[in-house]
């Protein structure tokens, strides 16, 4: 178990700077998820910690020891790759044992550790198979097993679930959570899937264009997004952004002075249907998506702002007539105000 410190780390490939002065402190035993759109530098940051890339400036330390010049295998980190990266010509046992063999671990110890990991992951009956004869989920478990047997100080996961189908993804996600609970090891996890990020993380680090946009607990990111980007990235469906003219009633109740183009953010789940069209926001229905538990209504205001609302979650909504136009009240406690120029959250 170990803490990880990333101190003013910079990385560029040729002319292109992919990480700008990243500073991050990851506590011992913490589960941290790097999330962001593709090309934001999240995988590069993970690979820097793994030692598969070298930073151009700054330093990375694990447990207080600077590891910039230490080989990947000597850093005490294990990585699970997106493509699993199993050795196709070796059996499951040998896949898991490869790292230990390289380190010269005695044979009895290798056997003990591999069978223990196989036991934990339910792979015992598959040890003699080759990766080709395994399903996607099983391969992923072997990849995790390979990481476990080395008993690393830090686990690194690079989008480990993106090659699995939806059902298996949920199941494997739970397994990773269980693993973290059982081992208590520091884990760093990269994904572009915000649901994975929200469910797994103790702390989420949102990256964009090689910079950290916000770092905080899933709750913080959901309730207090630092800026427009984080607000739109976290939450599904994504947050609605209104102009002041869309919500005159709300703006009138607001006491502070506001810039003309201030943006109002309201999540789809914080809009409630009301028969009174004067109170909140009214929109013309464009289309609906019925998801069983609730219905997603896609609407457009008279000012031409598109927004989405979750309808039918509570009993009062149940009888909602999904006709041409719908009005919603806005929960004052769940309104986010953003500065139009900087995109930063005002309140």
């Amino acid at each position: 178990m170990a803490s990880v410190t990333i101190d003013k780390v910079q990385k560029s490939f040729g002319e292109q700077v992919v990480l700008h002065d990243i500073e991050l402190q990851i506590a011992d035993g913490e589960f941290v998820v790097f999330v962001g759109p593709s090309g934001c530098g999240k995988s590069t940051l993970l690979r820097l910690i793994a030692g598969l890339e070298t930073n151009n400036a700054g330093s990375i330390s694990i447990d207080g020891q600077i590891v910039d010049n230490i080989a990947p295998s000597k850093r005490g980190v294990s990585m699970v790759f997106q493509s699993y990266a199993l050795y196709p010509h070796m059996t499951v046992f040998n896949n898991m044992a490869f790292g230990l063999k390289q380190a010269g671990t005695p044979r009895a110890e290798i056997k003990k550790r591999v069978s223990h990991a196989a036991d934990v992951l339910g792979l015992t009956s598959l040890l003699k198979r080759s990766p080709r004869a395994l399903s996607g989920g099983q391969r992923q478990r072997v990849a995790i097993g390979r990481a476990i047997v080395r008993e690393p100080r830090v686990f690194l996961f690079d989008e480990p679930l993106s090659n699995l189908d939806a059902a298996l993804r949920n199941q494997t996600r739970l397994e990773i959570m269980r693993l973290h609970q059982r081992l208590g090891t520091t884990m760093i996890y990269v994904t572009h899937d915000q649901i994975e990020a929200m469910t797994l993380a103790d702390r989420i680090v949102v990256l964009k264009d090689g910079r950290i946009e916000q770092s905080g607990s899933p709750q913080t990111l959901y309730h207090e997004p630092a800026n427009l980007f984080v607000a739109s990235f976290i939450g599904s469906p994504t947050m609605n952004f209104f102009k002041l003219t869309d919500l005159p009633d709300l703006v009138n109740r607001h006491t502070q002075s506001l810039k003309e183009n201030t943006i109002i953010g309201v999540r789809p789940e914080h809009l409630s249907v009301t028969p009174d069209s004067r109170k909140g926001v009214t929109g013309n229905l464009e289309l609906t998506e019925n998801l069983g538990e609730y219905t997603l209504a896609h609407l457009i205001t008279e000012q031409g702002t598109h927004f989405t609302a979750k309808v039918g979650r509570n009993s009062s909504d149940a009888s909602t007539d999904m006709t041409k136009s719908l009005s919603f009240t806005v929960d004052d406690n769940n309104v986010h105000w953003f500065d139009p120029d900087s995109g930063l959250r005002l309140r």
Partner: peptide, 15 residues
């Protein structure tokens, strides 16, 4: 050969 397999080997400490 996918590069990730070699990276995995490097992480596993292969010379």
């Amino acid at each position: 050969i996918p590069g990730e397999i070699l990276e995995a080997a490097r992480m596993d400490g292969a010379t």
